[in-house]
Design a protein around this nucleic acid. Structure first.
Lengths: 143, 143
DNA sequence: ATTACTGCAAAGGATTTGCATGTGA
DNA sequence: TCACATGCAAATCCTTTGCAGTAAT
């Protein structure tokens, strides 16, 4: 039920911006990624559908979509990764051994963030964190 | 009482590596930063003392010091930042409005990380997180 | 005396920018 | 129509690398 294309279209036009085929293609490409998607992957996916889209446009559009709040960006190992901003904020656990990515609900973090707010007066605004570590399987394998 | 230069020297030599003037200068420069320091800042600080040190050496040395565990590295807003690895792991709160950086003890995080480990079997290995948000002062100012 | 480390310069990759053209509203 | 968005190519920024020379142990 969430995240219809119409939502995006409306949100974009709301602020006087335009809905171009490029923006739709790039938004789709980020969606298809499921989880984290790099600029390269997005560009490749877009190019598979239309040779005419330029890499600079991908960069500019991703910036734009982040500003609009439709896409979120994180940094993993020095590389930017993108993901559709979901209604339910969440975070990721990335295994340093096998690279697997697990999703983690925001709830637990919110508890911590509230605690920080009470103790320090600092309001944390992180919709998307990436935590590195070792997944269950790799921990077993290491023993 | 911790982190004497001798500690560093010993740790470095322990593994057959060498303690060079460059490495000392760069380590000092990271120390002087107090909190997060960018490559540029480190390079500038080093150059203020010795014109002969090369930027490539700074990069190589920072890599080396991170591998040795003497320095930790984080990513803020697409830029790498470095800090002396302290005995007591901690994190940072960065205000998106004024840029102020506050230190946050690891304790609260450990509770969360333990919870994640129990629930998901995933062992988080983050010694150093950067959380963005709004500090007390800026929140008051915004109202 | 080794061989790790450094300086230098050049290469590399990712991202941004200027400008003329195209196109959605 | 007309400002916003795009394509193209060049520029820029940050970081890494190859290699010959230097210096720590």
């Amino acid at each position: 039920m969430p995240h219809q294309k119409l939502d995006y279209a409306a949100k974009i036009r709301e602020c006087g911006c335009r809905l171009t085929p490029q923006r739709e293609l790039i938004l789709d490409a980020v969606c298809e990624g499921g989880g984290h998607t790099t600029v390269d992957e997005i560009f490749a996916r877009v190019r598979a559908r239309s040779k005419a889209v330029n890499l600079a446009t991908v960069y500019r559009t991703l910036d734009f979509l982040c500003d609009m709040g439709l896409v979120v960006c994180a940094e993993i190992d020095g590389h930017r990764v993108f993901e559709i901003a979901s209604a339910r904020p969440h975070h990721h656990l990335v295994c340093q051994a096998c690279g697997r990515v697990e999703r983690l609900d925001h709830e637990m973090f919110q508890t911590l963030f509230n605690q920080i707010e009470r103790q320090r007066g600092f309001k944390v605004e992180m919709k998307h964190l990436v935590l590195f570590g070792l997944c269950q399987d790799c921990r077993n394998r290491e023993d």
